[in-house]
Design a protein around this nucleic acid. Structure first.
Lengths: 335, 335
DNA sequence: TCATTTATTGCATTCGAAGTCATTATTACG
DNA sequence: CGTAATAATGACTTCGAATGCAATAAATGA
């Protein structure tokens, strides 16, 4: 029945007839306390409903035990799974998630203010785009950061990423089995680094394959944009043999648009591939041929890396690239 | 170029030739500081890269500015949207989100420990089940809490919820247009309060409508469980005329199962309804008749309520019930 | 049993900003 | 110009737990 004010370590100490230090030591693991006082303190602490105040602890230890997780609105549909994994895996390492959602570029200034003032131990950014000068700030403030799902060429930042080139190569090989004569590349928004990377890799590979008949359209990763792009295209052009989408959601949109408004059969008349391996890409009605990102391993890599840098502030930046798995769905004809 | 240690208000004060109090005042809005010192302090602060330490502030003000958001694994597919809304709306009210994911009942003890130690200003629980004795703890610790998407009968807790009864009534009325002879109710998991509520309401209403041929199956809110339940059922029984699913994801599973393995046409031979109005329920290939939850308004209600209780600790508990909108899709035949 | 090592304990200080209060600088006004 | 009212400022204390250090108790060995 705690009346009105919070119970502090002093209150417990007084009640248990020990010093405040003793109480503190009982609640810190691995410190020298006799069995007798430990029990005595624990008993009174429980009785009084005492819980150590993490804020005070943070102030003195200079470790907040919190990791800022930044979710950009450009993160695609697999972000809920990623976020849930991040939370779980950080919890297992005794870190809490301070969540920030980033809507537009405007919010970045404020976001960074928050990050510095909240003294987070580290930062994980999901698919967010930061200028390199922003990234430099992390170093200045000595806050370790890991970029999830982003490749930074200059290699001075910690990144975890799925191997886009390898994945897209596999997808294109799968498409090539049917020897398509025309390609439509459905890119994500140009303000998404991942989208740009996927598009450029796709175009490069297609060029290397000697494909001439390649066109690019720009969506925004959403279902509707997948539909709209395809509808738009078919108004003026004939159907492409293969559609390469930068993510599964747009691929689903493409499939639905074709189904509703056009007399084209997938995969017989047209092939569609996606990327990510989100849950709905496996649904019976779609069964998209795609690359499934190894989310759990990616997150594990990100968390491991972040904690390494938190514990060891001078470990060098690192880029980990994991390989996704090709899912042979039913949106590409199998000869 | 901050060398190694963090810049504190004292450092800025010394550099700017003022007292620490002055620096503090500059960074607190609405306090009496002359234009001259304000500028002087701001200048040196910027030069030195000073940011107020939120941890220290929390300690003295006894306000962490953080709200714990608990996401239960039982939260269904619309939780990413909810979470994103929560984060946005709390940010607008100058609160940060400390995210906790709750996997199983085991984690609850630990979760509550964390909540108390981190001195959060309030808690929003998404679709989580807590024993009433747990809820009492919030009161003891004087931490305001709002349960999202949960109805608690005893009314001593703040809750925000979609009007299940009204919604389900509309869905059943929609089904009734085809005068179905048999109903299959596909419930969510029994350890989810929302699932139980939706199921019981459904059964009550069906009984009041005088329907005799009603059967219940239990899934776990997932796509696969929707498929499995229906497959299982059809092995031994004939197809029901109407399937009432506790959420959209299972409804999608039901539709896909029918499409793949059975010669039954939806909606001509069988009607299916869902609940939630998740994005994929609108997709062309499904177009489920469902109730769309007013997520933004629900979250706004939750956030408003929480902040009201944070600012005014003796305001009485409140239950807000918002009404969802019936989406007339294509999974129920329209006479 | 006594000296010596080792395990416990308490005191006092620290973390960094905020707020109280008394003091000083400004302004307003008769 | 003097006085009252107001604004601005700084010294000092506070929040609650952690920790270095010194003091004390327990354990070990001779």
């Amino acid at each position: 029945m705690s009346k009105n004010k919070k119970v502090t370590s002093y209150d417990v100490a007084r009640e248990a007839g020990v010093s405040q230090s003793a109480v503190s030591r009982v609640f810190r693991p691995g410190l020298s306390v006799s069995q007798k006082t430990r029990e005595k303190v624990m008993a009174t602490a429980n009785k009084m409903g005492y819980r150590p105040n993490a804020i005070a602890r943070m102030l003195i230890t200079k470790q907040s035990g919190m990791v800022a997780v930044i979710v950009s609105s450009r993160a695609n549909e697999n972000y809920p799974e990623v976020l849930s994994q991040v939370s779980k895996q950080l919890a297992a390492r005794n870190k809490r998630v301070l969540l920030f959602t980033l809507d537009d570029a405007d919010g970045v200034d404020d976001l960074f203010e928050q990050i510095w003032t909240f003294q987070v131990d580290g930062v994980i950014a999901l698919a967010a785009h930061f200028e390199s000068q922003r990234l430099a700030q992390f170093e200045q403030h000595k806050v370790p950061v890991v970029l999830y799902n982003r490749n930074v060429p200059d290699a001075s930042t910690n990144t975890v990423c799925c191997n886009h080139e390898h994945g897209i190569k596999q997808l294109l090989a799968e498409l090539k089995l049917n020897n398509p004569q025309s390609y439509l590349v459905l890119s994500g928004p140009t303000d998404s680094d991942v989208a740009n990377e996927r598009r450029e890799i796709t175009l490069d590979l297609l060029e290397k394959m000697g494909e001439k008949n390649v066109h690019v359209l720009y969506g925004d990763y959403t279902y509707q944009s997948g539909r709209d792009c395809l509808a738009q295209w078919l108004k003026k052009h004939s159907a492409p043999d293969a559609v390469v989408c930068s993510n599964d959601t747009m691929a689903i949109g493409v499939i639905d648009e074709i189904r509703e408004n056009h007399n084209i059969h997938i995969p017989n008349d047209m092939s569609v591939v996606g990327f990510d391996g989100i849950a709905s890409s496996f649904w019976q009605s779609y069964q998209i041929t795609t690359i499934k990102q190894p989310v759990e391993q990616l997150v594990k890599a990100a968390v491991d890396m972040l904690l390494e840098h938190i514990e060891n502030s001078d470990s060098p930046p690192e880029a980990r690239v994991l390989t996704g798995t090709l899912i042979k769905g039913n949106s590409v004809k199998r000869p």
